[in-house]
Nucleic acid binder design. Structure first.
Lengths: 129, 129
DNA sequence: TTGACGTAGCGAAAGTCTTCGCTACACTGT
DNA sequence: ACAGTGTAGCGAAGACTTTCGCTACGTCAA
Protein backbone atom coordinates (compact mmCIF):
# COMPACT_ATOMS: atom_id res chain seq x y z
CA UNK A 1 0.00 0.00 0.00
CA UNK A 2 1.26 3.45 -0.90
CA UNK A 3 0.57 6.24 1.49
CA UNK A 4 -1.91 8.81 0.19
CA UNK A 5 0.47 11.74 0.22
CA UNK A 6 3.03 10.27 -2.15
CA UNK A 7 1.52 8.13 -4.85
CA UNK A 8 4.15 7.33 -7.44
CA UNK A 9 2.51 7.66 -10.82
CA UNK A 10 2.34 4.48 -12.83
CA UNK A 11 3.35 4.16 -16.45
CA UNK A 12 0.20 5.44 -18.11
CA UNK A 13 -0.40 7.98 -15.41
CA UNK A 14 3.00 9.42 -16.11
CA UNK A 15 2.19 9.53 -19.78
CA UNK A 16 -0.90 11.56 -19.00
CA UNK A 17 1.01 13.85 -16.68
CA UNK A 18 3.49 14.56 -19.45
CA UNK A 19 0.65 15.55 -21.73
CA UNK A 20 -0.74 17.85 -19.07
CA UNK A 21 2.67 19.37 -18.41
CA UNK A 22 2.96 20.14 -22.06
CA UNK A 23 -0.55 21.34 -22.75
CA UNK A 24 -1.39 22.92 -19.45
CA UNK A 25 -4.85 22.41 -17.90
CA UNK A 26 -6.97 20.63 -20.47
CA UNK A 27 -10.31 18.94 -21.02
CA UNK A 28 -10.43 15.19 -21.53
CA UNK A 29 -10.84 15.58 -25.25
CA UNK A 30 -7.41 17.15 -25.70
CA UNK A 31 -5.70 14.74 -23.38
CA UNK A 32 -7.34 11.85 -25.09
CA UNK A 33 -6.32 13.02 -28.52
CA UNK A 34 -2.66 12.91 -27.52
CA UNK A 35 -2.91 9.65 -25.66
CA UNK A 36 -4.76 8.07 -28.51
CA UNK A 37 -2.16 9.22 -31.02
CA UNK A 38 0.53 7.78 -28.81
CA UNK A 39 -1.02 4.40 -28.16
CA UNK A 40 -4.48 4.03 -29.60
CA UNK A 41 -6.28 4.31 -26.32
CA UNK A 42 -10.05 4.22 -26.17
CA UNK A 43 -11.79 7.36 -24.94
CA UNK A 44 -13.35 5.50 -22.02
CA UNK A 45 -9.92 4.46 -20.92
CA UNK A 46 -8.64 8.00 -20.86
CA UNK A 47 -11.61 9.12 -18.80
CA UNK A 48 -11.12 6.23 -16.42
CA UNK A 49 -7.43 6.89 -15.98
CA UNK A 50 -8.18 10.50 -15.19
CA UNK A 51 -10.74 9.51 -12.62
CA UNK A 52 -8.24 7.14 -11.03
CA UNK A 53 -5.65 9.89 -11.01
CA UNK A 54 -8.18 12.27 -9.53
CA UNK A 55 -8.78 9.83 -6.73
CA UNK A 56 -5.07 9.43 -6.13
CA UNK A 57 -4.66 13.16 -6.08
CA UNK A 58 -2.38 13.26 -9.09
CA UNK A 59 -4.70 15.66 -10.87
CA UNK A 60 -7.42 18.08 -9.87
CA UNK A 61 -10.30 19.20 -12.02
CA UNK A 62 -12.50 22.17 -12.41
CA UNK A 63 -16.04 20.87 -12.53
CA UNK A 64 -17.46 24.31 -13.11
CA UNK A 65 -16.03 24.39 -16.56
CA UNK A 66 -17.93 22.36 -19.10
CA UNK A 67 -16.31 20.15 -20.22
CA UNK A 68 -14.29 19.63 -17.02
CA UNK A 69 -10.74 20.87 -17.07
CA UNK A 70 -7.97 18.72 -15.58
CA UNK A 71 -4.68 19.98 -14.24
CA UNK A 72 -1.76 18.16 -12.66
CA UNK A 73 -1.13 18.68 -8.95
CA UNK A 74 2.56 18.02 -9.40
CA UNK A 75 4.91 20.12 -11.46
CA UNK A 76 7.21 18.29 -13.77
CA UNK A 77 10.05 19.36 -11.51
CA UNK A 78 8.48 17.92 -8.38
CA UNK A 79 7.60 14.65 -10.04
CA UNK A 80 11.05 14.44 -11.53
CA UNK A 81 12.67 15.06 -8.21
CA UNK A 82 10.68 12.30 -6.61
CA UNK A 83 11.56 9.84 -9.29
CA UNK A 84 15.19 10.81 -9.24
CA UNK A 85 15.33 10.32 -5.51
CA UNK A 86 13.67 6.99 -5.87
CA UNK A 87 16.14 5.98 -8.53
CA UNK A 88 19.10 7.11 -6.46
CA UNK A 89 17.81 5.19 -3.51
CA UNK A 90 16.93 2.04 -5.37
CA UNK A 91 19.79 1.63 -7.76
CA UNK A 92 22.66 3.75 -6.61
CA UNK A 93 22.22 3.10 -2.91
CA UNK A 94 21.97 6.76 -2.18
CA UNK A 95 24.94 7.96 -4.16
CA UNK A 96 23.50 10.77 -6.23
CA UNK A 97 26.80 11.38 -7.90
CA UNK A 98 26.84 8.04 -9.64
CA UNK A 99 23.55 8.98 -11.17
CA UNK A 100 24.81 12.39 -12.23
CA UNK A 101 27.79 10.81 -13.90
CA UNK A 102 25.59 8.36 -15.76
CA UNK A 103 23.17 11.01 -16.83
CA UNK A 104 25.96 13.27 -18.00
CA UNK A 105 27.50 10.43 -19.89
CA UNK A 106 24.30 9.67 -21.72
CA UNK A 107 23.59 13.30 -22.46
CA UNK A 108 24.23 14.99 -25.73
CA UNK A 109 24.58 18.25 -23.90
CA UNK A 110 24.82 21.64 -25.42
CA UNK A 111 27.48 24.14 -24.44
CA UNK A 112 24.91 26.25 -22.63
CA UNK A 113 23.72 23.32 -20.62
CA UNK A 114 27.22 22.38 -19.62
CA UNK A 115 27.79 25.93 -18.51
CA UNK A 116 24.64 25.69 -16.45
CA UNK A 117 25.95 22.62 -14.72
CA UNK A 118 29.21 24.38 -13.99
CA UNK A 119 27.37 27.27 -12.46
CA UNK A 120 25.43 24.97 -10.18
CA UNK A 121 28.62 23.19 -9.29
CA UNK A 122 30.26 26.45 -8.30
CA UNK A 123 27.30 27.33 -6.20
CA UNK A 124 27.46 24.05 -4.38
CA UNK A 125 31.13 24.29 -3.68
CA UNK A 126 30.64 27.77 -2.35
CA UNK A 127 28.02 26.68 0.12
CA UNK A 128 29.93 23.65 1.18
CA UNK A 129 33.20 25.17 2.32
CA UNK B 1 4.65 -6.28 -23.94
CA UNK B 2 8.33 -5.85 -23.23
CA UNK B 3 10.74 -7.19 -25.72
CA UNK B 4 12.83 -10.07 -24.45
CA UNK B 5 16.17 -8.33 -24.76
CA UNK B 6 15.37 -5.45 -22.44
CA UNK B 7 13.12 -6.39 -19.58
CA UNK B 8 12.95 -3.52 -17.12
CA UNK B 9 13.22 -4.99 -13.66
CA UNK B 10 10.18 -4.47 -11.48
CA UNK B 11 10.26 -3.25 -7.92
CA UNK B 12 11.09 -6.47 -6.15
CA UNK B 13 13.31 -7.67 -8.95
CA UNK B 14 15.38 -4.55 -8.54
CA UNK B 15 15.59 -5.18 -4.84
CA UNK B 16 16.98 -8.62 -5.54
CA UNK B 17 19.40 -7.27 -8.12
CA UNK B 18 20.72 -4.83 -5.55
CA UNK B 19 21.35 -7.67 -3.17
CA UNK B 20 23.18 -9.59 -5.87
CA UNK B 21 25.24 -6.57 -6.82
CA UNK B 22 26.29 -6.23 -3.24
CA UNK B 23 26.91 -9.86 -2.42
CA UNK B 24 28.07 -11.13 -5.76
CA UNK B 25 26.86 -14.51 -7.05
CA UNK B 26 24.89 -16.16 -4.27
CA UNK B 27 22.68 -19.09 -3.41
CA UNK B 28 19.01 -18.51 -2.68
CA UNK B 29 19.60 -18.80 1.00
CA UNK B 30 21.78 -15.71 1.17
CA UNK B 31 19.56 -13.69 -1.10
CA UNK B 32 16.55 -14.70 0.90
CA UNK B 33 18.12 -13.73 4.17
CA UNK B 34 18.59 -10.17 2.97
CA UNK B 35 15.22 -9.93 1.33
CA UNK B 36 13.53 -11.31 4.38
CA UNK B 37 15.32 -8.85 6.64
CA UNK B 38 14.21 -6.05 4.38
CA UNK B 39 10.57 -6.98 4.03
CA UNK B 40 9.70 -10.24 5.72
CA UNK B 41 9.43 -12.24 2.54
CA UNK B 42 8.67 -15.93 2.61
CA UNK B 43 11.34 -18.26 1.29
CA UNK B 44 9.04 -19.59 -1.41
CA UNK B 45 8.53 -16.08 -2.67
CA UNK B 46 12.24 -15.48 -3.01
CA UNK B 47 12.66 -18.68 -4.97
CA UNK B 48 9.74 -17.80 -7.19
CA UNK B 49 11.02 -14.32 -7.89
CA UNK B 50 14.38 -15.75 -8.84
CA UNK B 51 12.76 -18.20 -11.20
CA UNK B 52 10.78 -15.40 -12.80
CA UNK B 53 13.95 -13.37 -13.12
CA UNK B 54 15.72 -16.35 -14.59
CA UNK B 55 13.03 -16.64 -17.20
CA UNK B 56 13.25 -12.94 -17.99
CA UNK B 57 16.99 -13.25 -18.28
CA UNK B 58 17.71 -10.87 -15.43
CA UNK B 59 19.77 -13.51 -13.66
CA UNK B 60 21.57 -16.65 -14.63
CA UNK B 61 22.30 -19.57 -12.39
CA UNK B 62 24.87 -22.26 -12.03
CA UNK B 63 22.97 -25.49 -11.63
CA UNK B 64 26.13 -27.49 -11.20
CA UNK B 65 26.72 -25.94 -7.85
CA UNK B 66 24.55 -27.33 -5.09
CA UNK B 67 22.77 -25.25 -3.94
CA UNK B 68 22.39 -23.33 -7.21
CA UNK B 69 24.23 -20.06 -7.44
CA UNK B 70 22.53 -17.02 -8.94
CA UNK B 71 24.26 -14.09 -10.55
CA UNK B 72 22.89 -10.95 -12.19
CA UNK B 73 23.25 -10.63 -15.96
CA UNK B 74 23.28 -6.86 -15.66
CA UNK B 75 25.88 -4.79 -13.89
CA UNK B 76 24.64 -2.09 -11.62
CA UNK B 77 25.98 0.42 -14.10
CA UNK B 78 24.11 -1.03 -17.03
CA UNK B 79 20.88 -1.28 -15.14
CA UNK B 80 21.33 2.23 -13.86
CA UNK B 81 21.98 3.56 -17.29
CA UNK B 82 18.83 1.95 -18.61
CA UNK B 83 16.72 3.33 -15.85
CA UNK B 84 18.23 6.76 -16.20
CA UNK B 85 17.50 6.76 -19.90
CA UNK B 86 13.98 5.67 -19.22
CA UNK B 87 13.55 8.43 -16.69
CA UNK B 88 14.97 11.03 -19.03
CA UNK B 89 12.68 9.86 -21.74
CA UNK B 90 9.56 9.61 -19.66
CA UNK B 91 9.76 12.65 -17.46
CA UNK B 92 12.21 15.07 -18.96
CA UNK B 93 11.24 14.49 -22.56
CA UNK B 94 14.77 13.64 -23.47
CA UNK B 95 16.56 16.50 -21.80
CA UNK B 96 19.23 14.78 -19.80
CA UNK B 97 20.47 18.05 -18.41
CA UNK B 98 17.30 18.73 -16.49
CA UNK B 99 17.84 15.43 -14.80
CA UNK B 100 21.47 16.20 -14.03
CA UNK B 101 20.49 19.49 -12.49
CA UNK B 102 17.89 17.81 -10.32
CA UNK B 103 20.19 15.09 -9.26
CA UNK B 104 22.93 17.53 -8.44
CA UNK B 105 20.52 19.65 -6.49
CA UNK B 106 19.41 16.72 -4.39
CA UNK B 107 22.93 15.51 -3.80
CA UNK B 108 24.91 16.12 -0.70
CA UNK B 109 28.04 15.83 -2.74
CA UNK B 110 31.56 15.67 -1.45
CA UNK B 111 34.32 17.80 -2.79
CA UNK B 112 35.86 14.84 -4.55
CA UNK B 113 32.64 13.99 -6.27
CA UNK B 114 32.17 17.51 -7.46
CA UNK B 115 35.69 17.44 -8.85
CA UNK B 116 34.82 14.25 -10.64
CA UNK B 117 31.86 15.88 -12.27
CA UNK B 118 34.04 18.79 -13.35
CA UNK B 119 36.49 16.43 -14.90
CA UNK B 120 33.78 14.73 -16.90
CA UNK B 121 32.44 18.10 -17.90
CA UNK B 122 35.83 19.16 -19.20
CA UNK B 123 36.10 15.99 -21.15
CA UNK B 124 32.74 16.51 -22.76
CA UNK B 125 33.47 20.07 -23.74
CA UNK B 126 36.71 18.95 -25.23
CA UNK B 127 35.10 16.38 -27.42
CA UNK B 128 32.30 18.64 -28.47
CA UNK B 129 34.21 21.60 -29.87
C1' DT C 1 -40.10 17.04 -28.39
C1' DT C 2 -36.87 14.30 -30.51
C1' DG C 3 -32.57 12.71 -32.30
C1' DA C 4 -27.69 13.29 -32.66
C1' DC C 5 -23.62 14.23 -30.48
C1' DG C 6 -20.21 15.12 -26.93
C1' DT C 7 -19.12 14.13 -22.17
C1' DA C 8 -19.03 11.48 -17.72
C1' DG C 9 -18.99 7.25 -15.08
C1' DC C 10 -19.55 2.40 -13.41
C1' DG C 11 -18.21 -2.11 -13.14
C1' DA C 12 -16.12 -5.92 -14.83
C1' DA C 13 -12.44 -8.17 -17.66
C1' DA C 14 -7.67 -8.75 -18.81
C1' DG C 15 -2.95 -8.26 -17.80
C1' DT C 16 0.93 -8.00 -14.77
C1' DC C 17 3.36 -8.43 -10.35
C1' DT C 18 3.91 -10.47 -5.88
C1' DT C 19 2.84 -13.72 -2.53
C1' DC C 20 2.84 -18.30 -0.53
C1' DG C 21 0.85 -23.20 0.41
C1' DC C 22 1.98 -27.45 -0.68
C1' DT C 23 4.54 -30.97 -2.87
C1' DA C 24 8.84 -33.21 -4.19
C1' DC C 25 13.49 -34.24 -4.32
C1' DA C 26 18.44 -34.71 -2.54
C1' DC C 27 21.53 -35.41 1.05
C1' DT C 28 22.86 -36.62 5.84
C1' DG C 29 23.31 -39.29 9.94
C1' DT C 30 21.25 -43.17 12.41
C1' DA D 1 15.85 -48.09 4.94
C1' DC D 2 14.26 -43.99 7.31
C1' DA D 3 13.58 -39.48 9.46
C1' DG D 4 15.16 -34.90 9.43
C1' DT D 5 16.75 -30.88 7.10
C1' DG D 6 17.60 -27.88 3.29
C1' DT D 7 16.48 -26.78 -1.50
C1' DA D 8 13.53 -26.41 -5.80
C1' DG D 9 9.21 -25.74 -8.19
C1' DC D 10 4.22 -25.46 -9.48
C1' DG D 11 0.06 -23.39 -9.52
C1' DA D 12 -3.23 -20.55 -7.69
C1' DA D 13 -4.56 -16.45 -4.93
C1' DG D 14 -4.39 -11.53 -4.16
C1' DA D 15 -3.21 -6.94 -5.39
C1' DC D 16 -2.74 -3.45 -8.56
C1' DT D 17 -2.94 -1.45 -13.31
C1' DT D 18 -5.04 -0.85 -17.62
C1' DT D 19 -8.66 -1.58 -20.74
C1' DC D 20 -13.30 -0.88 -22.51
C1' DG D 21 -18.50 -1.98 -23.10
C1' DC D 22 -22.44 -0.02 -21.91
C1' DT D 23 -25.29 3.31 -19.74
C1' DA D 24 -26.69 8.07 -18.65
C1' DC D 25 -26.97 12.84 -18.93
C1' DG D 26 -26.87 17.57 -21.12
C1' DT D 27 -26.96 20.54 -25.05
C1' DC D 28 -28.21 21.96 -29.56
C1' DA D 29 -30.67 22.06 -33.90
C1' DA D 30 -34.56 20.71 -36.61
Amino acid sequence: MRRPGSPQPTEVELQILRILWELGPSPVRDIHQRLNEAKGTNYSTTVKMLSVMLQKGLVKRDEEAQPHVYRPTLTRDKAGKRLVNELIEKVYDGSAMSLVLHALASAAASREELAEVRRLLDEMEGKQS
